[in-house]
Structures are given as C-alpha cells and as structure tokens.
C-alpha cells in the first residue's frame, strides 16, 4: 500500500494553476522531485502535510485524508518536514527547539525528550551547541538542527524542501552527509532538490515536474539515461 496517495490534485494560487491534476503514489522509499523553478515542486510537498490547501482532488497520507482538518495533526506526526530557510525558533535554544514539539504534542516527559534530542544532536554532529541559540549558529548548523528537530517527532517520512538551496557549498556538503547517512539507515525521504548528483546517489525514484504536471516518473538509473529532450536539456542546465 502506498504511503502517500495523491489523487487528481489541482492546486491554484488565485488564477495561477500550480499543480494540474496530479495523480501519484509515493512508497516507502527515497524519492527525489526535480524540475525547473516555479514548476510546483515545493507546493506539492507543502500540500502533502497540509500547509497548503488543495482545490480539487485528495491526498491520503497513510490512508488518512489531508482535506479533513482533524486529520492534520496525525498527518504531520507521520511526515516530518525540513525547510529551505531552516525556520528554527529564535526565542529558544537548540535543545528547546528540538524538544518543544515532542513534549507538547507527543506528551513526552522533558527528561526522555532531552535524552532523545541529545542522541539526535549527536547524530547531526552538534551536541556541543545544545544550549546555543539559532542566531549564534551558521546556516549549515541551523539546518542540521532543523533535521534533528524534525526527526525528534519520530516521523515515518521525511519531507525535505530544497534544504540545501540556502547554503554555501561547504555547508551543503555537511548537510548532505547527514542526509546520506539517514538514507543509509533506511529513512523514507521525499526530497525536492537541485542537488542532482546527490539525488542520483541516494534516491531510488525520480519525479520530474514541469509546469504543474508530472513530466517523468521512473527509477533513478532510467531517468538519467532516458532519451527525452526536455529531461536532457534540464540536466544539462543544472549541470
């Protein structure tokens, strides 16, 4: 059974149709969503966990519909999300950022939440920054904390929205290293990204979205050797 079931979804911003009748099944694997800017990739991700409402169609996450408001909390526990702009809470230090939701939403006790947070921070290599504030961290460090924060909710799926686009090459490498190790552990990830070589390395399936529709949907190896003009042009552009 598919983990995420997208059925005939149309999404508009005013008169602008961003997603045009998309039907798609995402499984328990690592998928990368590629495509030109403005094609609707990030929007699709944001529709999956209900941050953006959809006008037509439905999305079922683990069998639960995204259109019912009361389901959203459950869906968001299932899908963790990491954002391009990190979005760490400036008023809280690192450990508080990571433990806030587990304590308030999952009902964990502070001690066990902090223990879990410590192990996650260690995994992303930032344990010594636990009591620092986001403003005192570099972009790459903030993003790694953001990953730990998303993982603290024990999600089944990780949604990654261009998580390295706001980082310089060195920090990008740090973050990709973390993601690669997560991939090795078998974490289900759906990533919107411009890091083509990274996508090629870790993902099993590539989705190519162009102007609101799915232009291609195939296993990774097939995608990079397919004889399609549009895809080849895109790959050349992105290098």
């Amino acid at each position: 059974m598919a983990v995420i079931d997208i059925k005939n979804v149309t999404k508009k911003f005013g008169d602008n149709t961003v997603l045009n009748n998309i039907t798609l099944e995402l499984n328990d694997e690592i998928s990368a969503i590629l495509g030109p800017s403005g094609s609707g990739k990030s929007t699709m991700l944001r529709c999956i966990n209900g941050l953006e409402p959809i006008q037509q169609g439905d999305i079922l996450v683990d069998g639960v519909s995204v259109k019912t408001r009361s389901n959203l909390r459950r869906i968001r526990k299932t899908c963790g999300m990491v954002f391009q702009q990190f979005n760490l809470f400036p008023n809280l230090d690192v450990i508080q950022n990571v433990t806030l939701s587990p304590i308030k939403i999952l009902g964990q006790k502070r001690a066990s939440a902090e223990k879990h947070a410590h192990s996650l921070l260690e995994k992303v290599g930032l344990l010594e920054k636990a009591r620092h504030y986001p403003a005192q961290l570099s972009g790459g460090q903030q993003q790694r904390v953001a990953i730990a924060r998303a993982l603290a909710m024990n999600p089944k799926i990780l949604l990654l929205d261009e998580v390295t686009s706001a980082l310089d090459p060195e920090m990008t490498a740090d973050v990709l290293k973390i993601l690669e190790s997560l991939a090795g552990e078998g974490t289900t990830m759906i990533m919107v990204t411009h890091e083509i070589s990274f996508a090629r390395r870790v993902s099993k399936r590539i989705l190519f979205i162009d102007q609101g529709s799915i232009a291609a949907d195939m296993p990774t190896d097939a995608f990079f050797s397919v004889d399609d003009q549009r895809i080849q042009k895109f790959l050349q552009h992105v290098g």
Partner: peptide, 18 residues
Amino acid sequence: VDKGLIDASYALGMSPLQ
C-alpha cells in the same frame, strides 16, 4: 514574525493555538 516559523510549528504538529 516570519511566516516560515509558523509553517515550521504547524509541520511539527502544533495547533494554531499552540
């Protein structure tokens, strides 16, 4: 307040009140 922070709080499962 940056809209992104609100997005992040929702993505972490918080209700509008929280």
